[in-house]
Amino acid sequence: MIRFIQNLGKSTRISFTKLGRASYFLIQIISGIASVLVRPRLLLNQLYSVGVLSFLIITISGLFVGMVLGLQGYYTLSDFGAEETLGVMVAASLVRELGPVVSALLFAGRAGSALTAEIGLMKATEQLSGMEMMAVDPVKRIITPRFLAGFISMPLLAGLFSAVGIIGGEMIGSGLLGVDEGAYWSQMQAGIDFYDDIINGVIKSVVFGFVTSWIALFEGYDAIPTSEGVSRATTRTVVNSAFSILGLDFILTALMFGDN
């Protein structure tokens, strides 16, 4: 029993020190933003590897998620004779929840794990301390551009995911199952509010982009500099990002859609 309490105390202490290091790291990242903006080339390179390379997986997944929503929504709604509202259902689920959440999860798996592995390997091969010895701050030069790229890419990717998904739902709904196309769009426009739904969805994806990039970069930077350490850090990135995304989604949803 005492052993258990001791272990609990120990793991609390460890997680607090880790949280402390992560917060300090975040401050370092943010203090480097100005120096990155002066050199947009650094940011552009990272927008390529973080954003462009995630583009395909996000759009294809978005299309399929939208198509599935179209099918399932149609079957459920037609039981109540309410197929006309398919558009609202597809759009609301995508814009409010699935767009930000699923694209963030995919982003963590595609870009987040790649970031952790890249930074971890740079640490393991002494590239980061090499840079420090060349009087170049690795956080400013390497980490901050990647963080900004993730932060910028995430809402764009989530927007793409939702847009492609809504089109996928329309393809199935009115193309295949015969929901009136006009009703699909007009019901959607009547039911989806710009501020309550779209802006809130974008805010969610901004938060997810921030948290996922932070976790991925921190795990890479904090990894034990061996091949085993890096592979563990990569796993932790995906797991921790998924937990944070889903947990934060609950909190944000409660805050945003609570008073209605």
Partner: peptide, 24 residues
Amino acid sequence: LVGLFVASGIVGLFFLAMHVSNLS
């Protein structure tokens, strides 16, 4: 490619704002 990516992302968000929501 980065330009295309950013443009398509903005088009996607614009599509959501104008075509999906009641903004328009």
